[in-house]
Design a protein around this nucleic acid. Structure first.
Length: 865
DNA sequence: CTTCGGCCCTAA
DNA sequence: TCAGTTAGGGCCGAAG
């Protein structure tokens, strides 16, 4: 069954590193296979040296009577040289096989091969093309695709598996209720989708029919996403393989297995149950999370290089998801090292032995998640490169597929959000690299991202301080100095686990994967769009819509964004009420039924009564929900309804772990709802629709304007109120109102009343909410203000500062200072740009000498006046 | 000396 | 192949 196995000369891989694909314009027929061949080899069997390291023993399983239930954590696919007997799908190899990896509630690891799932795409069906043409078309396209291949190393015999005519509708634009005919073309392998589309566009495949302007649909849907969408699997969900529907390929150390998982099974793609991650199935399996850190003996002043500088220590901590403390703590050291209470010390005389032992340790402990600090860009590539340099046998077999090497690839990710970022990526089939640094860069804005400052910031705890310049000296000392180094190394492995736990990263990311339907790994390696795309595809599938493949026509024109009300600058010594629209953009899309499927495009042949259309302020037209309810509004509704439910459950739930799951979920749901608008406006994206995004912002602009006017017209002395209300500022979805009242109670009461009053002027579910009162309030400029933040009259919640706040903060303090005649100081966390602002700013403001800053530690500054 | 565009960062 | 949006303040250096 080891059909992927290919024996390679070990030397080939040493100097012949993975080819860099990113810059090269590659041919479609050589993408996957070449990489695959490069990292295929004969991996070692998993050793079992210690009961403590291994997973709990796998119970006896009878495939006729026992079901297999596991939480999957990673999904991938491969090309097999043999069709699995008795499974659906093509009988002629090579065939594409999906793979799900996961863990049971008992902590046993599972690798599940899923057979018979094939990639496909759609094209619009030419008018005269009928059912009886399908077979001829299939043969013709198959022949054309085969001919198109330069080389056919895998000996592909059949490329087009099936051609059928289906009734579908394009998601783009309202075209009435009549379905159109589409041809669904099922291909043998994922990599054949692109050539098939290209050939259909460029060549005449069949003389009688013109396929050249038959636009392709869902051609660029990734096979992993396609599989998950079509089988109803979402990221990190539970999967049940019923008794009698699977075959056990191997258990544990059976040499026939392809995987290092304890249980390896084969199942057909339509024979398993994908549980929705709700209720009972919201639980989380006891995943093994490994955190590790390496130390290198570098040369003075030179950053360690794997070709020169040895790895001298590797510290490891493994924790089970849901538990508080690691159950494995150890440190692999080069040369003798004195013992450390609570940790196992493993000493080696030769570096190559140390590395080899560590790789065996990974295979034996079989972690599901790999973490640490900057492991993606430093520790992992360093270990792999170093092991390659020392020719350590079998080091690079670190994933869950026995004969696949983990190799380092350069990856360039570019987005407006993150900028240009070069990253290294290492494959660990079935294990998820979850670099804490990467998570922090994504989710938190910090002044410094060193492990030390991050630990201080979140845990109020610092590292063992060993400066990198003395690492080599400590290594060259005795077993006591190496012990000191090991303590340091262990702490660096431990802190990421503490931080993951404190910030609930794993739980939050799992919930995000479940809500959006993508794998855990793609949350870290891919952008925002794939999450919306996954949800869109799921909705489309149930409703018979298909999504056009994006063709690169450069988007040039920007669309207009939100209004920022001209601020009435000043210092307000009375309460300022803030009214906010809750989830403004999602609720606009819901209220006005804005969607791809409801967009009425000019020039459309379908007639729609004007009364059934809604014209947006940008003069786009969308059909009303009475005619057809949009998919985007439906997605948003279910996201927001689920969020409401999660928040309610959160109120009742007592168990702290379940609470954190629920809190992670409500957060994921909120972020997901907000990113739908961005998706429609992403002009270099999968499915931009500026009619939607520009209508959304235009509605937003009219709404904030209307809110301002309504409030200022109603709350006047003429109408019996204390003072004329003035909207002093507003940005996108909020207005700041000065009701001219003196007390917090009064300003809150008026705020609640005004919010309800204005809400009644809008269509459901648009809702203006009273949220907070600032008292006092300092408004310096657009996007720049500060004030004490009150949600209840008794006491303020916090001092809130927006924008480059420092000078205003200080201004406020000066006022106090002038009143109290007392020296003041405060400590504030600030970001890099604010720090620069302090350092650059004159020490005078409004002719007061204002500040001296003293750096206290990595995050806090003491500011004296 | 002023103006403007690029850059960086933030608000929402 | 991949990449969420626009508005806007403040600083800096180049051009005029």
């Amino acid at each position: 069954m080891n059909n992927q196995k290919r024996i390679h000369n070990a030397n080939m891989n040493i100097n012949n590193n993975v080819p860099l694909k990113k810059a090269k314009h590659f041919e479609d027929d050589e993408i996957d296979e070449e990489n695959n061949m490069d990292n295929t080899g004969e991996g070692p069997e998993t050793m079992q040296s210690s009961e403590k390291w291994s997973r709990p023993a796998l119970p006896q399983i009878n495939p006729k009577q026992d079901k297999v239930v596991f939480q999957q954590i990673d999904i991938d696919h491969y090309v097999s040289g043999e069709a699995f007997p008795g499974m659906p799908g093509p009988k002629l190899p090579p065939v594409s096989v999906m793979r799900m990896y996961g863990v049971t509630m008992e902590g046993n690891s599972v690798c599940c091969h899923v057979h018979g799932f094939c990639p496909y795409f759609y094209i619009i069906c030419p008018r005269s093309f009928e059912k009886n043409n399908c077979d001829a078309f299939r043969l013709a396209l198959d022949k054309a695709v085969l001919k198109d291949m330069r080389s056919n190393k895998e000996n592909i015999q059949e490329t087009v598996l099936e051609v059928e005519i289906l009734e579908r509708q394009s998601i783009m634009g309202f075209l009435g209720d009549d379905k159109q005919r589409f041809i669904k073309i099922t291909m043998a392998l994922p990599k054949l989708l692109a050539p098939a589309k290209r050939i259909l566009e460029k060549e005449i495949v069949m003389n009688d029919f013109d396929f050249q302007d038959c636009r392709a649909f869902e051609n660029n849907v990734d096979i992993d996403i396609r599989f998950m969408v079509d089988t109803g699997v979402v990221g990190c969900s539970w999967v049940e393989i019923p008794a009698g529907s699977y075959i056990i390929r191997s258990t544990n150390s059976n040499p026939n297995s392809e995987s290092r998982s304890q249980l390896e099974i084969d199942v057909a793609f339509d024979k398993f149950i994908a549980h929705e991650p709700d209720g009972e199935w919201a639980k989380v399996a006891p995943f093994r999370i490994l955190s590790f850190d390496i130390e290198c003996a570098g040369r003075r002043g030179i950053f360690p290089e794997p070709k020169v500088d040895p790895v001298i220590q590797i510290a490891n901590m493994i924790i089970r998801q849901g538990e508080q403390e690691p159950f494995i703590r150890n440190c692999f050291t080069l040369n003798e090292c004195a013992t450390i209470v609570g940790s196992q010390i493993l000493c080696y005389d030769k570096e190559a032995d140390l590395l080899g032992a560590w790789a065996s340790f990974i295979r034996e402990t079989d972690p599901d998640i790999l973490t640490g600090y900057n492991i993606n860009n430093f520790d992992i590539p360093y270990l792999i490169d170093r092991a390659k340099h020392l020719k350590v046998k079998n080091f690079e077999y670190l994933g869950r597929i026995k004969n696949l090497r983990s190799v380092v690839k350069e990856q360039v990710l570019q987005s407006k959000q993150m900028g240009r970022r070069e990253n290294k990526y290492v494959n660990f089939e079935g294990r998820v690299p979850f670099d804490l640094l990467f998570v922090l860069l994504r989710d938190y804005k910090l002044r410094s991202y060193t492990l030390n400052s991050v630990s201080y910031h979140f845990l109020q705890e610092q590292k063992e301080d060993v400066h990198h310049s003395i690492i080599t000296d400590l290594q060259n000392g005795d077993d006591q100095t190496r012990r000191r180094l090991a303590m340091y190394c262990l702490k660096d492995a431990y802190l990421p686990l503490r931080l993951l736990n404190k910030l609930m990263c794993i739980v939050n990311y799992m919930e995000m994967a479940r809500v959006t339907g993508v794998t855990l790994e793609s949350l870290l390696t891919r952008g925002q769009q794939i999450k919306v795309m996954s949800q869109l595809l799921r909705k489309c599938r149930t409703k018979g819509f298909v999504i056009p493949s994006y063709h690169t026509q450069g988007g040039e024109d920007q669309f207009e964004g939100a209004t920022v009300i001209e601020p009435k600058r000043g210092y307000y010594a009375n309460p300022i009420t803030t009214l906010d629209f809750a989830s403004l953009y999602p609720s606009i899309m819901m209220a006005h039924n804005l969607c791809y499927t409801t967009l009425f495009q000019p020039g459309t042949k379908i007639h729609v009564d004007e009364k059934d259309l809604e014209r947006t302020p940008t003069n786009n037209a969308f059909v009303k929900s009475s005619v057809r309810k949009g998919i985007l509004p439906e997605i948003l509704e279910s996201l927001l309804a689920a969020r409401k439910k999660a928040k309610n459950d959160l109120k009742i739930e007592k168990d702290p772990f379940k609470r954190s799951v629920l809190d992670g979920r409500q957060l994921a749901l909120k972020i997901s709802a907000n990113s739908v608008y961005g998706f429609t406006g992403a002009q270099v994206g999968k499915l931009p629709c500026l009619e939607i995004s520009s209508s959304v912002t235009a509605y937003g602009r009219t709404m904030i304007e209307l809110t301002k006017n309504e409030v200022e017209q109603k709350y006047t002395r003429i109408n019996g109120y204390e003072n004329d209300a003035v909207v002093i500022y507003g940005d996108t979805d909020s207005v700041m109102v000065n009701f001219g009242v003196k007390t917090l109670e009064k300003s809150m009461e008026l705020g609640r009343e005004a919010a309800d009053f204005v809400s009644s002027k809008f269509i459901k579910p648009i809702k203006l909410e009273f949220e907070k009162v600032y008292y006092p309030y300092l408004l310096i400029n657009k996007k720049r203000y500060a004030g004490l933040y009150f949600t209840k009259p008794e006491t303020y919640d916090k001092m809130d500062c927006k924008g480059m706040f420092l000078l205003f903060f200080v201004y406020n303090l000066i006022k106090k200072l002038m009143v109290t005649k007392q020296p003041h100081f405060f400590i504030k966390n600030i970001t890099t740009s604010q720090e620069r602002c302090i350092l650059r700013s004159p020490l005078y403001y409004n002719s007061f000498k204002i500040l001296i800053t003293i750096r206290l530690n990595y995050e806090s500054y003491l500011i004296l006046i």
